[in-house]
Nucleic acid binder design. Structure first.
Lengths: 230, 230
DNA sequence: GCAAAAGTGTTTAATTTACACCCATGG
DNA sequence: CCATGGGTGTAAATTAAACACTTTTGC
């Protein structure tokens, strides 16, 4: 039974801004667009909403179809609805950003996806309003990363505090005092030090750490909250 | 020239969570729904996106058509896209919240709009996922109000510091130390004291203040930023 | 004069900041 | 033995929290 008798139905899409981290740089995963118009130009990964899925599910599906990645951190950040934003046909799109472990992602990414990582500091011109979307996604990521422990999604399971600092410096584009940064981390019981060192970058070796979601959940229930200002 | 050959086109709507402030209470403007299904039940103000307008424009139009209000603060906070959120037909809706001066709004609101203010602490069951939307809008308002000077949108042009404090207490549902609150405000040059007192609530009278956007814009360029934690 | 809201000041504790310093080790 | 990244400690400065205090004025 239909009660709404409106003719106007725009297309609805989702677009994913996919962040990765490697060698101290925050990166973005872009693809060459494979349909007209603008075939071959740089674009975020997107797709149209289907009848059987929610927006969140659509974003996860697009991500999996195009990269093979599952169970990644995904957050909606904004809907974009300018009349002419898509030159071919009116399309309202909902922007999501994803945080992936770039090392792991690389394994999944088969070459025919035509996907490429580019540093966030050097994003090429993208189709439509995608550059604007990237900017909005980054802003949201910055905010989320200061207030919630989502940064870990960009790192491997095991990471050193120096890596973590480097990540935050990349996200915020600033440099951080190592002493102060580490002191704050030391108070977070949900950051568990492992009995293993990373000896790749120094003679002394750096302890590996691990984020333990269960401990964080408990700390949160007790009123503690995550805060890492740049 | 159409390049996309997809059949699935959901309806796209916008819904407005309208906040007002009166007598120390943060309120929400609700309407009785005037179409089936769920005719007569409490609902946010919404409407369908039209061909010629952006999402932002649609939200402003819906607000004006239903309340007569123009030039109000409107911010998009989230898109909602669960498959069955609207029982009649698949509809993706984009949530906006509005901040209005309730005194001014009351003048505009003609009675046949069937609109009613209810305190945010006592929101009745709403249709579909509208209660969830209200919760999300409130969260966003709380965040915005701590980091940007948007609270003033809920007050008349001239207001006292006591009113401002009461507003923040209502937004956050906490009580605030008057001394500390005022000390922080004293440092904000863009809060200008007028040569006029409000004598309605005390024998001594309280100075009226005014928010001066130009001065704030300049302060912001110089790196100052607004911060009012609850 | 006194109640009650408006408004100021002061003391103490907690955080932040900047930096100096020690540690471990492969070459 | 020393250069280098890893890691700790601390003093000074800033900010936040709690609360005592003064001011004004209609009744």
């Amino acid at each position: 039974m239909k009660s709404y008798d409106y003719a106007y139905r725009p297309l609805v899409a989702v677009d994913c801004t996919i962040f990765g981290f490697r060698n101290g740089k925050l990166n973005l995963l872009l693809v060459r667009r494979d349909i007209e118009p603008r075939r071959g130009e740089w674009s975020l990964m997107g797709g149209f909403l289907q009848a059987h899925e929610s927006l969140d599910e659509a974003a996860a599906r697009v991500l999996e179809q195009r990269t093979g990645l599952q169970d990644v951190y995904l957050e909606q950040f904004k809907a974009f609805g300018a009349v002419d934003r898509d030159e071919a046909e009116r399309t309202v799109t909902v922007g999501y950003y994803a945080l992936v472990d770039q090392d792991e992602a690389e394994v999944q990414l088969s070459s025919d996806y035509a996907a490429h990582w580019v540093p966030i500091t050097d994003v090429p011109p993208l189709i439509f309003d995608h550059n604007e979307m990237v900017e909005a996604a980054l802003q949201r990521l910055r905010h989320r990363a200061t207030h919630e422990p989502v940064g870990f999604e960009l790192l491997p399971e095991k990471f050193t505090l120096t890596q973590l600092q480097s990540l935050y410096e990349a996200i915020f584009g600033t440099s951080i005092d190592a002493g102060n940064f580490r002191r704050r981390l030391r108070k977070m019981e949900y950051l568990q030090r492992l009995n293993e060192k990373d000896t790749n970058t120094s003679r002394k070796g750096a302890w590996y750490y691990q984020f333990v979601p269960e401990v964080y959940a408990m700390a949160k229930r007790n009123g503690a909250d995550f805060l890492l200002k740049p």
